[in-house]
Amino acid sequence: MRGSPCFPDVTPLVRKTLLCFGWLCLAGGAWAQDAGLGEVWRNLADRQNTAAQLALAATPASAGRERQLAEAVVKLGRQPVTQATLREAEGELAQLAQGNDELAAQAGYLQARVWSVHMQTPDYARAAELYRALAKRFPTNHWARLGLVKLGMLTLYTLPEPADPLMRLRTVETMMPAVAEPPLQRDLNLQLARAAVLFGRPETETLVYLKAVDRVGGLVGLVAEEVVLQLGELSLRVGRLDESKAYFERFLRDFPTNNRGYNVTLKLQEIAARQHAAKGGQP
């Protein structure tokens, strides 16, 4: 009986079994590699940064650009955060952003985030520049659109130009078509509404933004309830009594557990009195 160079003294049957086992091991290894990165992302999503670091360490370097991205994201979340680590992560993200795919768009977005919120002293101008470049390179990508929402907020509150508050609002309004995705447009309209109030713009203008927010819906937390309150109250302030009444009634119907319900019932009484007076009755 002649053996193979690798398995000199085994029967063909055993040799075939061992070969099958080897292939299975290789396939398993490849699966483990995928599971490894999935595990890293899952841990990061669940804020288990240490577990994510361990999972990342167990993932082979051959996992490619996605592994590099995961490595940079792990660095962004690793405690204690140091400026040196952030600069390192930023460099890696900048390199990854050179590509022309989804990973590059995500890396480009995160690179802007490093300057915008991660660095101890944010560089908003740099972040804005990166958001703009990203939107230009990947106009239909989600990360670029999310970046536009962030750019909109920077434009409203932080960037030096345009200096005039009204121009800030108008500049951000022009971004809206490029933001494209309704949930992101909703978030940006919410910021426009807040800024309009802060800049002392007329209630009618704020109402336009708020109605756009309301059309999309799906906000989470107390803000969902407050948007309906705002729509009711601002409509009342500009004398749109029927609209105001409808919003306040909707508030009582949709959010019966909000503790401002009593305030709203007083508002409804006020509206009823004003409507009665408008029809010629005594106020």
């Binding site: 890293v40 992302w41 899952r42 999503a45 804020r47 994510a52 994201v73 962004l76 979340g77």
Partner: peptide
Amino acid sequence: DVGIAAVGA
């Protein structure tokens, strides 16, 4: 940002 990047991935 970390959570958003991870859920995005």
